[in-house]
């Protein structure tokens, strides 16, 4: 490997690659948001819902965790979305990643909800709250705080999985890496560079989440370093 030539390739492609970073960021912010908005109600239904609703959620989670993302991407981009008049590859990427993530996120939230003592909901009901109020004012604020560590796993996996949407030519980091690598004949250097970009993005995201976790921590729970 010619080191100088490799460095040249990276420097010359920098603006183009940074453009890809923004596409990736857009993809995962959109997908995580969609996954969150769907994942929370899915979790609530799975814990508190009626039998039929719970079964449907279990089915949803099973399908979206069980079918490979690539299959879903093709299915949605070529099969389902065109019927709805949507032909944006980026949007297809956000939707598929988001729907998948919702399945995983719902299980993280469910774990957190189930770790709350039942007395919390009882106390809320005793104050005359409706179930919806009790869940949104008492259960979720506590459960969501407890979900942050697990949620950070989902973030870092989704970030890496987002590269899969290059198969429908969304111009995110990996798609651009491949085209630069082809043009400059520097596949190894470009792959390493892409790896560094992903690592930095992961690191920033995890830092932010860890900070959030500390800021919203509730007194009375155990903490780092205190046994």
């Amino acid at each position: 490997m010619n080191f100088e030539k490799a460095l040249r390739a990276i420097i010359d492609s920098l603006p183009y690659m940074l453009g890809g970073v923004w596409v990736t960021v857009g993809l995962i912010v959109g997908a995580l948001a969609l996954g969150f908005v769907l994942g929370v109600p899915l979790a609530v239904i799975q814990v508190y819902g009626r039998t039929l609703a719970r079964r449907l959620v279990v089915l949803y989670v099973w399908l979206f965790r069980g079918v490979p993302i690539l299959v879903l991407i093709f299915l949605f981009y070529f099969g389902i979305l065109p019927h709805l008049g949507l032909d944006s590859a980026f949007l297809a990427g956000v939707i598929v990643l988001g729907l998948t993530s919702a399945a995983y996120q719902s299980q993280i939230f469910r774990g957190a909800i189930q770790s709350l003592p039942a007395g919390q909901l009882k106390a809320a009901r005793a104050l005359g709250m409706t179930d919806t109020q009790a869940i949104s004012c008492i259960v979720l604020p506590q459960a969501l705080r407890l979900s942050i560590p697990g949620w950070s796993n989902e973030f870092s996996i989704l970030l890496k999985d987002s590269a899969l949407v290059m198969v429908i030519s969304v111009q995110e980091i990996m798609a651009r890496t491949r085209s630069v690598a082809g043009r400059t004949h520097e596949p190894v250097a470009m792959a390493l560079f892409a790896g560094v970009l992903f690592f930095i993005l992961t690191w920033i995201g995890l830092r932010l989440l860890r900070g959030l976790e500390r800021r919203v921590r509730i007194k009375g729970y155990s903490q780092e370093g205190s046994v």
């Binding site: 993280i108 774990g111 957190a112 770790s115 407890l146 979900s147 942050i148 560590p149 697990g150 950070s152 796993n153 996996i157 921590r217 009375g220 729970y221 155990s222 903490q223 780092e224 205190s226 046994v227």
Partner: peptide, 23 residues
């Protein structure tokens, strides 16, 4: 690495009274 993060979340959800009682 991923499992440890889920476990960490679980550990932090334990109320400190449990630890006090054990101690």
């Amino acid at each position: 690495a991923y499992q440890s993060e889920y476990i960490r979340g679980g550990l932090l959800s334990i109320r400190s009274g449990q630890i006090k009682a054990a101690r």
